[in-house]
Design a binder for these strands. Structure first.
Lengths: 206, 206
DNA sequence: CCAGCAAACTGAACTAAATTCAAGTCAGGA
DNA sequence: TCCTGACTTGAATTTAGTTCAGTTTGCTGG
């Protein structure tokens, strides 16, 4: 049983405020385009104080990514747990994927835009720890979607094929949206959900 | 008729060599992880000489992206032009998408990993020009895939639905591969092609 | 054959942004 | 009260990309 260590934050910790500001800036303006010092200004502290909470700008980014991956996995589990039919579970998972707050949209965008960071080792201790955490979460998410498809194949909801490969394709479709989706754009999240749900079901079904 | 201006390079120009070195490094180690000076070393020139060819490191990156987008679009046109049936044309397009050299794999990877750069304006002249060029190519590619699906719907190969939305989904599947594909990995390009071709046809068909 | 010229190149500064250093301040518990 | 650790800071440092102020190279027309 893996137990997440609850990092106890002091009462006057600004960690959460920094994360929120970072998500907004990284999400809207992009990570490299965002000056680390600007985050400090927004939070109302000196630049140096940031290093009390994060080892580096990249460490903050990786933390945001881990947090979002963790949330996504948790939500997937919650929403698929008590559904019997794998087809219904798949629909529920997709619905849940698009049932997100505006800030979570930004987090998904950040995550998608910087996935490549997870591929190569980081120079510093804490960054590398956070990277490994994120990688593991990605693997877990892939494993769970694969298991869901496999369950559906065993039960006869979907024809039997390479579940892992299919999961990769399905996940790619689900997350690709965050590259172009903008709140107030030409498509609503509801429309996105319908588009992707339909596509996913076609891919895994007969 | 849009006419691409052929930029004539002097005979002792190292532009192509720089691009090749940059593609290899950006592709293998990642853009931010690659030191611009290292590229100069590999090519065998001083760091300063790089600025004779590119206004900045980012300008070089954007150039690589434009080049790859241009190649992809050209290839799509070549390969779909003289195919009658839209279903066959779609298959041909997907096949062509995975008929690439190792260096083109790297270019696609770079492109995918830095798509977000195309979203926000660039500070300098030439970078912005290159960004606009790339954006236009992305739009062109989307338009052509949309037109292909539309053609297939009119001719009765595919059921009639929102062609543009479907094209987005199909393209997402096709290009998502470059995020995880590695030469010598667990899947060959041929297997990838079959996986994605199958998925795409399921998505657009009855 | 040589002047002239543009393409190609260079070492030495410069700059911006992230990061480290060394030294505080503040709040709550013994 | 004072002590401790979480929290904060201004000043200095570092690093990588970039600019400056020219110099070299090889081709071309006279």
């Amino acid at each position: 049983m893996v137990q997440t260590v609850v990092e106890t934050e002091g009462p006057r910790s600004k960690r959460a405020v920094i994360l929120a500001a970072a998500i907004d800036s990284f999400g809207h303006d992009g990570y490299e385009h965002t000056k680390w010092a600007k985050i400090a200004d927004e939070v109302g502290i000196g630049q140096t104080a940031l290093y009390h909470y994060f080892e580096s700008k990249a460490h903050c980014l990786l933390t945001i990514m881990s947090l979002e991956l963790n949330r996504s996995l948790q939500r997937f589990r919650d929403v698929t747990a008590e559904v019997d039919g794998a087809d219904e579970a798949l629909k529920a998972a997709i619905t849940a994927a698009y049932d997100v707050s505006p800030r979570e949209v930004l987090q998904m965008r950040i995550l998608q835009n910087h996935m490549d960071l997870l591929a190569t080792p980081r120079p510093s201790e804490k960054e590398e720890v956070e990277r490994q955490k994120a990688r593991q979460l990605v693997r877990d998410i892939e494993t769970e979607w694969t298991a869901l498809l496999q369950r559906g194949m065993k039960a006869g909801y979907f024809p039997k094929r390479d579940a892992h490969a299919l999961a990769t394709v399905v996940l790619a479709m689900v997350v690709s949206v965050w590259r172009w989706y903008r709140p107030g754009g030409k498509m609503t999240l509801k429309q996105v959900r319908e588009l992707i749900a339909d596509a996913c079901l076609r891919v895994v079904s007969t």
